[in-house]
Write a protein that binds this DNA or RNA. Structure first.
Ligand SMILES: [Zn+2]
Ligand SMILES: [Zn+2]
Ligand SMILES: [Zn+2]
Ligand SMILES: [Zn+2]
Lengths: 161, 161
DNA sequence: GCCGAAGCGTTATGAAATAACATAACTAGG
DNA sequence: CCTAGTTATGTTATTTCATAACGCTTCGGC
């Protein structure tokens, strides 16, 4: 995550141990309900995202993919990311070219992010698009999806200035 | 713009002739007021954006840069784009890796886009972020900038389905 | 004129994403 | 079972997007 941040790296820690296993198991269960397959590459990329302290770039995932240090081939990771996004287990942050695991309950929700410019953390939140939708639809548009990414300072980084 | 669209390409036409000259002159005047320099490469890239029917990729600009067909070198265009964004004459659309000229009056405003998934047009609009800001600030965040990109169908493409 | 800052041209490289095609694994019908 | 259709993976190569680094020029204050 944000390498140039002077704050505690663990302010937004990733999952490990039982919490990680539980999250993966929940994804597994969700897949079984919808007849989707959480195959090894998909599971591995999901694990890496869940373990991370912050948004991961695709090539970070590629480098970290093999437990033995062997990198993955790019399509392996990009395909897994496509699947995880489709199922709602992960989100792409456009303004960072990076990916995060979904932290919200329930699939198919609308995602938005608060991105700290100091420590690099990306906090997912539930956006309120009603005003935007109203404006767009009054202009004749049919809105399908909305990307919202706010940048600023997280509470931890704000206090120190 | 959207190459695979069956609709009239000129539904969202670029500027030409006097309108183009006027827009460039307005940017020139704006620069003089703020002691900024609209140098030849910056002016050229702005012209290309204003002439275009829709969002332009950086390498589209690079290819179109020379009136004699000679492409620009990438840094030439990327530096110009950085300047135009800083001054508010252009915006980057993150989800397209593309650029558009600003269509709003007054610099320093917040930009948001309605992007048609059929014809590729990108309509700039003035967003209402009050709900998002309230949510973010109640969570302790200090928001500096917001990126909002909505995708769907423009009025022209909506009617035909 | 001198000097520091800003801008530009150029070469080269790095980072992000996908195309294309062959192989393997599930899964449903017979 | 077996076999055809579909989904997923492995692999190679390429394309697309963006920036680093360096030297030269231009601009504007002193
Ligand atoms: Zn989510
Ligand atoms: Zn922070
Ligand atoms: Zn604008
Ligand atoms: Zn359209």
């Amino acid at each position: 995550m944000g390498a140039d941040c002077h704050h505690a790296e663990s302010a937004h820690p990733g999952l490990e141990g039982v919490a990680l296993a539980d999250a993966v198991a929940a994804a597994q269960a969700q897949c079984e309900r919808t007849r989707e397959r959480l195959t090894p590459p998909r599971r591995r990329v999901l694990e890496l995202l869940l373990e991370s302290d912050g948004p991961m770039k695709a090539y970070d995932l590629i480098a970290a993919y093999g437990q033995d240090g062997e990198p993955a081939k790019p399509p392996t990771v990009y395909r897994a990311l496509e699947f995880l996004e489709r199922l709602g287990f992960a989100h792409r942050i456009e303004s960072l070219n990076a990916y995060v695991p979904c932290k919200m309950e329930g699939a198919g929700h609308r995602a938005a992010f608060l991105i700290c410019e100091c420590c690099g953390a990306a906090q997912e939140f539930e956006p309120d698009f009603s005003a935007q939708f109203a404006a767009a639809e009054s202009a004749g548009y049919a809105v399908r999806t909305v990307t919202l990414e706010a940048r600023g300072l997280c509470p931890a980084c704000k206090v120190e200035g």
